[in-house]
Structure formats: C-alpha cells, structure tokens
C-alpha cells in the first residue's frame, strides 16, 4: 500500500515531516499487530501549542485510516506526562525516536536525541501505529554525527559520552540521563530555568541542517 497519499494529506495540513516505518522488530506482543509506525514531525520550536498541533495531526491520521478500515493507536507527543487513562499504560512500549529512525527520518545523535539531516534536533515528534499494510520507508540504521563532538564538549553536566549510535546496538548507553536530570534538578533548586537544551542548540544540524555539519568538517 502506497503511503504517499497520506503523507501528502498530512503535509498539506501542516506536518513538517511524515515517515512510515516498519516497527516489527521494536514492538512487544501487545501491539505487534500494529506494526507500521507513522512518524510525524513539526518544526515549531517550543511553541506553546506545538503538542496540540501534533495531536490534531494524529487525529487527522486516525480519521484517514479509520475511513479506509484500518486500526490505529496514537502515542501523543508528551506521552511521558500522561498518566490518567488506561491506554497510557502502553505508551512506554514505543518511543517516537524508534518510529522516526525506522521511517528513515533521522538517527539517534551523540546527544541522545533524534537528529534529522535537515532540522537537527529541533523537531517535535508524535507517532501513530497502524495495521495498514503500508510499504515502509528505508530505515536509518547508523549515526551521521561523524567526528563532531560539540555536544560532548558543551554539555554542562558531562552526560554525553560521545558514542555513535547504530541500530544493531540499541542497548549501548549514549547519554547518562542521571547526570542530565541531576543538573536540571540542581538548576531548579537555584531558581534558574530547569531546562537546558544546549545539546540541541549547539548541534550544527539543528542550526543549518546538512550545511552546518559540513562546515564543521
């Protein structure tokens, strides 16, 4: 099944990037029947309504699929903060980063975030799983960070190890989240902004896409 009509429809409705990936190897028994992942990305920075916009796109995707007789299951952009419903228990079974790499929209950078060749780590992501038999896009299986170590050098908590991600080695720790979180905690105690985000802003891909990275080389 061709995914182009859906992609076109979603881009017309404001999506920055849309990819369809085969997630079979990443899914557990509960959800493996929904093995196509539609990765949705918006390039809107930390705009207040970014998440609402993403959820609107997810709803459009669900409606589009339902009309054609397919099932879907949306994992909202802020899945880690939603806890009130029954279905929220399943959100941790799939990560937006996995859906994005499987859809060929980027790799996991040294900063532990999804990096897209054109937008770096600036994108906000949401995922819709479905049983529609889409022909999947070609997955990204290795990192394109190369020798660049800007995020390693600039991380204020020293959390970035500088290791290259590859899909074959998913359990390797790329960022020490404990260090990252402890810095955020420390900052909030001292009444500063708890968020850091230096590893996003420092990344050449986030600033200038492919060209930014070439300049570094």
């Amino acid at each position: 099944m061709d995914s182009e009509p859906l992609k076109k429809f979603l881009k017309e409705n404001g999506a920055t990037l849309v990819g369809v990936g085969d997630l079979t190897i990443a899914l557990t028994r509960e959800i493996v029947h929904l093995n196509r992942g539609i990765a949705l990305a918006l390039n809107r920075g930390l705009n207040r309504d970014t998440n609402e916009q993403l959820m609107r796109l997810q709803q459009l995707t669900e409606d589009w699929l339902k009309e054609k007789g397919f099932r879907s299951f949306s994992v909202p952009p802020d899945s880690d903060r939603k806890k009130s419903k029954c279905i929220t228990r399943l959100y941790h079974l799939i990560s937006h980063k996995t859906a994005a790499t499987c859809s060929g929209l980027g790799w996991i950078g040294k900063n532990g975030l999804l990096i897209n060749g054109d937008y770096g780590s600036k994108l906000s992501w949401a995922t819709v799983l479905t049983d529609a038999p889409f022909k999947p896009d070609i997955p990204t299986v290795k990192s394109e960070c190369g020798a660049c170590e800007l995020c390693v050098k600039h991380c204020p908590s020293g959390a970035v190890h500088g290791r290259l991600w590859s899909r074959d080695n998913p359990l390797r720790e790329i960022v020490s989240y404990e260090k990252c979180i402890s810095l955020k905690k420390k900052r909030s105690i001292f009444d500063e902004k708890p968020n850091c985000g230096l590893c996003i802003t420092i990344c050449p891909y986030s600033r200038n896409g492919e060209n930014g990275h070439k300049m570094m080389r």
């Binding site: 509960e30 959800i31 029947h33 929904l34 099932r71 299951f73 419903k85 029954c86 279905i87 228990r89 399943l90």
Partner: peptide
C-alpha cells in the same frame, strides 16, 4: 481486538 483496543474501549467507557 487486542490489548490496545481493550484499553481504549475502557477509556471510552469511563
């Protein structure tokens, strides 16, 4: 139906 559907049905019921 599988587990995700059951849970979504449960949310609708609630």
């Amino acid at each position: 139906y599988f587990v995700p559907e059951i849970l979504m049905c449960a949310d609708a019921l609630y």
